[in-house]
Amino acid sequence: MKTVSIAKSHDGQQGVYTHASETCGCDMTFALFLPPQAAHGPCPVLWYLSGLTCTHQNVMEKGEYRRVAAELGLIVVCPDTSPRGDHVPDDEGNWQFGSGAGFYVDATQAPYSANYRMHSYVAEELPALVAENFPADMNRQAVFGHSMGGHGALTLALHYPERFRSCSAFAPIVNPSTADWSRPAFERYLGPNEADWRAYDACALVEDGRSFSEFLIDQGAADGFLDEGLRPWLFEEACRKANIALTLRMQAGYDHSYFFISSFMDDHLRWHAARLEANL
């Protein structure tokens, strides 16, 4: 692992790091904020997964999480959204596929299966690296994300309910198997058999019996992607039928941008902190 940059912030430390990823077959970059409490012992870990076209930088620069994370003693880890490199297959000009659009799946179709393994990267390789190199309490983990990253957060929580104590999302893609901006990517990554897509679809996972303690979703009511791509009411209905607790907050006037995310970031950090501390 190599350190790209370190900056002091709110008496904590915002770092950016790179490492050679065996899972993705390329160098990967991630951001990690260490709160001041980390100088005295391990701190709980909150994973933030970003959306389409993003890297680790978007939330680091626009998410406004450090002040409250420092107050609460939360390590915040921000992975990249896809593998990158000259040898990594891409579809230049298509912002919904390839670079910046890994969809947090493990691709099974050539040529993407060699590198696009973001589910395993975020679930296995990067947590092991964080545990080895930082004062992280891996017994207290939570996950949240935005849009494509909200989809990733929901599916990770449903796959690993024993690992994550809480899960929230900003404007998540809850049913990517049927959304126009994700169906083409799923077919190229996972193949034409839509039954194989269900492992990476939050609505389908709940329908197939996966469960989690509770979810929090904030959704901008003025989001231009709401009706065609996001449709949180589908996940709300799936959770209702499965008796899974879900708080869905439709926020009037808010769009899909980081102006929306940063407006409710404090709420999400405090919500996660309460649950990360609950079982000490």
Rank of each mutant, 00 (worst) to 15 (best):
A101R: 03
G100N: 08
C167Q: 02
W95D: 00
A123P: 01
C203Q: 04
G93S: 11
G191C: 12
G150T: 06
R163M: 04
N94S: 09
V130R: 01
V174R: 00
R165K: 15
A179E: 00
E125S: 09
E187A: 15
F212A: 09
A110N: 06
S213H: 14
A199Q: 12
S213A: 13
R198H: 15
R188E: 11
L158T: 02
D201Y: 02
R117I: 05
C203Y: 01
A142C: 14
G102D: 07
Y121S: 09
D208F: 07
V174I: 08
V130K: 02
C167E: 02
V105E: 02
R163Q: 14
E92L: 14
Q109H: 07
V174M: 01
G98L: 03
P127R: 11
D90H: 12
E124L: 08
Y112D: 04
I173K: 01
S99I: 10
E124K: 14
V105K: 06
V122H: 06
L129Y: 12
W95G: 09
E162C: 04
N139D: 12
Y189V: 08
R183K: 14
N133K: 09
N133R: 13
W181R: 03
F134V: 06
A199Y: 08
M148W: 09
G209F: 13
E125I: 11
Q96S: 11
A123W: 00
A136W: 00
Q96H: 11
Y160L: 11
G191I: 12
T155V: 15
G150I: 03
V143P: 04
L156W: 01
D91G: 03
S166C: 07
D106F: 10
G102A: 12
D208C: 12
S113R: 13
V206D: 04
A110K: 12
Y104R: 06
A195H: 13
